[in-house]
Amino acid sequence: MHELSIAEAIVAVAGRQADGRRVTKVHVKVGHLRQVVPSALSFSFGLVAEGTPVEAADLDLEEVPATGWCRRCEAESRLENFPLLCKTCGGSKLEILTGEELMVEYLEMEEETADA
């Protein structure tokens, strides 16, 4: 139920950033290495968003693949599974470039404006 805790944190960030406006979409980047199950996160989001300014919002998840840079041969690889290995030389000394993201990137909201 790791997704429930993450959903709570997303709702908190979005609610604060919305500053009283009604949120229609929350776009979140999730790296492959975060072990987040998208369906479980969406389900949890629906539960914890209830009664908040975020309750009518769609959770728009963007999955970010894991990539790494090899310190030995300096090649870049896409990392699908453990062990995390360089696809060029097989080395294991990798710097993770992407795949650890867990970030609210943007919100879409409705704002009430006075008619001109």
Binding site: I10, M103, E105, Y106, L107, E108, E110
Partner: peptide, 19 residues
């Protein structure tokens, strides 16, 4: 009054508050 859709770029780590 009418409603307009607005987009707000946030770029906030989900766990920043905890961190």
């Amino acid at each position: 009054m009418h409603k307009t859709a607005v987009k707000k770029v946030v770029m906030e780590g989900v766990l920043d508050a905890n961190d």
